[in-house]
Design a binder for these strands. Sequence first.
DNA 1: CGAGAGTTTGATAGTACTCAAATTCAGTGG
DNA 2: CCACTGAATTTGAGTACTATCAAACTCTCG
Lengths: 241, 241
Amino acid sequence: MSDHCFADRIATLIPLTAEEQAAIARLEERERPIRRNAMVMRENERLTEMFVLKRGLMMSYMILDDGSRQILRFHFPGDLMGLAGLAFAKSQETIMAVTESVVCPFERSHMAELVARHPRIGMALMALDQISRVNLNDRLAAVGRTSAKARVAALLLELRARTAPAKDGSFTPGVTQEEIGDATGLTAVHVNRMLRQLEDEKLIARDNGRISVVNEQRLMRAGQYIDRTARVDLSWMPPAA
Amino acid sequence: MSDHCFADRIATLIPLTAEEQAAIARLEERERPIRRNAMVMRENERLTEMFVLKRGLMMSYMILDDGSRQILRFHFPGDLMGLAGLAFAKSQETIMAVTESVVCPFERSHMAELVARHPRIGMALMALDQISRVNLNDRLAAVGRTSAKARVAALLLELRARTAPAKDGSFTPGVTQEEIGDATGLTAVHVNRMLRQLEDEKLIARDNGRISVVNEQRLMRAGQYIDRTARVDLSWMPPAA
DNA sequence: CGAGAGTTTGATAGTACTCAAATTCAGTGG
DNA sequence: CCACTGAATTTGAGTACTATCAAACTCTCG
């Protein structure tokens, strides 16, 4: 299973005391299954909750005036969703399940209480959020300044990094080509052509939706991909009280 | 003067006790003047500090493999700079002065102590940071899904909103057309053409670097601009202890 | 087997880029 | 005070990348 609880995620950053773990676990007391294409949050809807994604794949997106969609972020198990709404009365984005998913909803005031009682968790939360912001920075740079092929290559690598790959190394992105396009600022048609090109150049192989990375080095170069996760450093954080 | 201290900024979100104000003020004890084009933080440089921008205009950017630049964010007086590095050992971005500026540097461990002692400030800090993230979301959507003209229009409106305009309503963006291009994912040449087009359509007027918004309604529509600042809501925050 | 979502391919159009050069402007030194 | 300089802006011509439109194809699921 690819279930992940939030405490596990935070624990990858800093060691947690048993008490802290228990406090975080209280955010995840309720579980709610979400069907494919169902939304847990809608643009302009009144905001009260946040969510931890327990299982599945979800995404945040915005719809523009002309009806086009920009996917801002994909959410993977263990991710906190809806933090961006912290300062707003209404949601700025829609959060939808790309595949069958399970989320744990909680009131944002619970988050406030948790942080008030456990400031270290608050700092860890901020750090976690900054990691996802850096990801957003990378995405902006890709969309603003790299070719269509590079953007598709980079997104494939990102999806692979966060999806449990099969033992042969292949993985199922779980997203349609249209979704890849909406995340990278391209049309579905052009995404398809870029995938074919990557395949023709033997950087990837495709078999009915499954994708294998054939030449990781070249694919990473093609996508100007940087793995930030290797460089996380929270050594400056004060130790547990 | 366009000086702004950080406490003022936070105070626009939530009321602060005198003690909280004093604690925040301690982050700003040192001031450092920064010349135009000077950097306070470089990509891949070891990270230890964060900054509050006291005066001037600065920006964060990344340089890609081919040497092109993506501006991620402009910083205005009162903004906290460098928070994105919170979880990393090395900087992911460069922060440079667009105009003469003054910053207040402090160690990130000071930030950790501040938040540990004043959890409410921590929450406010997170909220503040989410506001800037929503801005980044908007930028991504603009770059990914809107026309060149729309992106330039949106950026002009953003710059105007955060720059003290003259009494005739005109303002000086303070950025070159090349910088506008690097922020919006366009070339300087094309930015120039879009400005001319906006001028020809009487949405803006230009006079030697100064820009006046002639038809705000149409410019906002052209840029699909949404003013998020009006919708900030922190009423759920617990009151001061 | 039929239906619908998703993918693939072809032909054409259009937006934005590249390259090159002229022009304006602010600052500097003679 | 003026020529000089480099940065920034402006304009033109040609090109390339990506979008659009349309249709065929494949796969899954009921």
